Computed example of a mutant assay.
Amino acid sequence: MFRRFTDHPSKVNETYFQHMAMSFGFGSRMLVGALACFVHGFFPWLCLTRGSDTVRALHHRMVTHRVAKPVPGPNGVLAASD
């Protein structure tokens, strides 16, 4: 039962609480980026790059800085997990 809370975080080298903090951080930045997109939709001269800047920053933080534990694939070869 408790493995459901720890399996995924351990695959990305985080504890449950570290993963929660990272997720909350990502979620809050996505909310701010989304709100900026809505503002931009109504007022095209405002928030010109906030949405795309948020996406780029989050992608950089999540994908290029992730250090995932290698896990064996179906043929026994190690592959990075998500």
Rank of each mutant, 00 (worst) to 15 (best):
residue 49 T to K: 06
residue 9 P to W: 04
residue 26 F to A: 09
residue 82 D to I: 11
residue 39 V to K: 06
residue 68 A to Y: 05
residue 65 H to E: 13
residue 81 S to T: 15
residue 25 G to Q: 03
residue 75 N to E: 08
residue 49 T to D: 05
residue 5 F to C: 10
residue 78 L to A: 07
residue 7 D to H: 13
residue 64 T to K: 12
residue 10 S to M: 11
residue 59 H to V: 09
residue 55 V to L: 02
residue 7 D to C: 07
residue 8 H to M: 15
residue 56 R to F: 03
residue 55 V to F: 02
residue 45 W to A: 09
residue 1 M to N: 10
residue 1 M to L: 12
residue 44 P to T: 10
residue 19 H to T: 05
residue 23 S to I: 02
residue 56 R to V: 04
residue 76 G to M: 02
residue 7 D to V: 14
residue 78 L to K: 07
residue 62 M to C: 07
residue 24 F to L: 15
residue 16 Y to G: 00
residue 37 C to M: 15
residue 6 T to Y: 05
residue 79 A to M: 14
residue 58 L to P: 05
residue 32 V to M: 09
residue 39 V to H: 06
residue 15 T to Q: 06
residue 40 H to M: 02
residue 16 Y to T: 09
residue 27 G to I: 01
residue 71 V to L: 11
residue 43 F to E: 06
residue 44 P to H: 10
residue 60 H to M: 05
residue 42 F to E: 04
residue 71 V to I: 13
residue 57 A to N: 07
residue 15 T to W: 06
residue 68 A to M: 06
residue 37 C to K: 15
residue 54 T to A: 01
residue 50 R to G: 00
residue 2 F to I: 11
residue 34 A to T: 03
residue 72 P to T: 02
residue 23 S to G: 03
residue 14 E to F: 10
residue 33 G to I: 01
residue 9 P to D: 05
residue 6 T to A: 06
residue 23 S to F: 04
residue 10 S to R: 15
residue 4 R to A: 13
residue 4 R to M: 11
residue 58 L to Q: 09
residue 43 F to I: 12
residue 69 K to M: 11
residue 17 F to M: 14
residue 62 M to G: 00
residue 41 G to F: 13
residue 74 P to N: 09
residue 55 V to C: 00
residue 57 A to I: 00
residue 72 P to A: 03
residue 27 G to P: 03
residue 38 F to C: 14
residue 68 A to L: 00
residue 56 R to G: 01
residue 79 A to D: 00
residue 39 V to Y: 08
residue 39 V to R: 07
residue 71 V to P: 03
residue 69 K to V: 13
residue 74 P to Y: 01
residue 61 R to M: 06
residue 9 P to A: 05
residue 30 M to D: 05
residue 75 N to A: 07
residue 19 H to L: 05
residue 21 A to P: 00
residue 9 P to R: 04
residue 63 V to N: 13
residue 76 G to I: 01
residue 33 G to V: 02
residue 52 S to R: 13
residue 52 S to D: 12
residue 64 T to C: 07
residue 36 A to L: 05
residue 13 N to I: 00
residue 12 V to T: 06
residue 43 F to N: 07
residue 62 M to I: 12
residue 7 D to W: 13
residue 19 H to N: 12
residue 3 R to A: 09
residue 62 M to E: 08
residue 52 S to H: 11
residue 8 H to I: 14
residue 54 T to Y: 03
residue 76 G to K: 03
residue 58 L to S: 03
residue 72 P to W: 03
residue 3 R to H: 07
residue 53 D to G: 00
residue 45 W to D: 09
residue 26 F to N: 11
residue 6 T to L: 04
residue 23 S to Q: 02
residue 66 R to Q: 15
residue 73 G to H: 02
residue 52 S to A: 12
residue 71 V to K: 08
